[in-house]
């Protein structure tokens, strides 16, 4: 699936990306190149800085130093909503939905976001119905039977995770950041989610954080291993898996 070496094109790059929290460096000097059309996994033990890195890439945190470029354009320090408009969408590790809204209403909101329809306080919300067709497609795509008029707060866990993915997809992103899409899932759901992510990753660029090596091995074209905020190793899954540093630092640990 990865393009030939000659057509490689970097979509998102970081240089010397560092985030400090009161003297503690959660991310230090990270140089990352995400190539267009690939699935890149970020792995590492808890506290390695994966989620901090995600928050930096999506503008939820401002880096202490270093730069982030998207398609060669410097986006360091931009706000989350601006980065979303530039085509970077993310899912959240802890399911993050609007409890009082239905699945359809979620997707209408996501689809309406680039159109500016949300600013219109003088019009009927029925205007959002123009997005129904596309919303249904997205629900189909993530394998959600139309859960109709029930607020998301009442969804089953698997449904919430699926809607989380559909929401990120609704923005039709250039870059899709998935923060532990299989967190808290049973084995069967993990396999289904792998299939789902593979399907939606076709023709897209995806950065994926996951603890589950099975997930990473099945999906990732490239793997970046983080440890204590730094890049420890980078390469294909097999290269990384046999890297002696990684073996001692991470894969050697009992839970891996």
């Amino acid at each position: 699936m990865a393009p030939a070496r000659t057509e490689r094109e970097v979509l998102l790059a970081t240089r010397g990306l560092t985030k400090e929290f009161r003297g503690f460096q959660a991310v230090r000097g990270v140089d990352l190149d995400i190539e267009r059309g690939t699935v890149q996994a970020l792995v590492g033990p808890n506290g390695a800085g994966k989620t901090t890195l995600f928050n930096l890439l999506t503008g939820f945190l401002t880096p202490t130093s270093g730069t982030i470029t998207l398609e060669g354009r410097d986006i360091t320090g931009q706000q989350p909503e601006q980065i979303a408009h530039l085509g970077v969408a993310r899912s959240f590790q802890i399911t993050s939905l609007f409890d009082q809204l239905t699945a359809l209403e979620h997707l209408e909101l996501a689809l309406a976001s680039p159109t500016g329809l949300g600013r219109r306080f003088w019009q009927s919300e029925r205007r959002l119905a123009t997005f129904h067709g596309r919303a249904d497609e997205l629900l189909d795509q993530v394998g959600m039977a139309h859960p109709a008029h029930r607020p998301a707060g009442q969804f089953a866990y698997g449904q919430k995770r699926a809607l989380e993915l559909a929401l990120a997809l609704a923005l039709d992103p250039k870059l899709l950041l998935l923060d532990e899409p299989t967190a808290g899932m049973g084995l069967e759901d993990v396999d289904r989610t792998i299939e789902l992510v593979r399907r939606i990753a076709t023709g897209r660029t995806v950065v994926l954080v996951d603890h589950n090596m099975h997930v990473v091995g099945s999906l990732a074209d490239r793997v970046t291993v983080l440890q204590q905020g730094e890049i420890l190793a980078e390469g294909t899954y097999d290269e990384v898996r046999t890297n002696p540093d990684v073996v001692t630092a991470y894969l050697g640990q009992p839970h891996a």
Binding site: Q79, S96, F98, Q100, L109, A110, S113
Partner: peptide
């Protein structure tokens, strides 16, 4: 319900 999520969807 969820301001961070609204921002991630592109809402200021």
């Amino acid at each position: 319900d969820n301001p961070a999520r609204a921002r991630a969807l592109g809402y200021d």
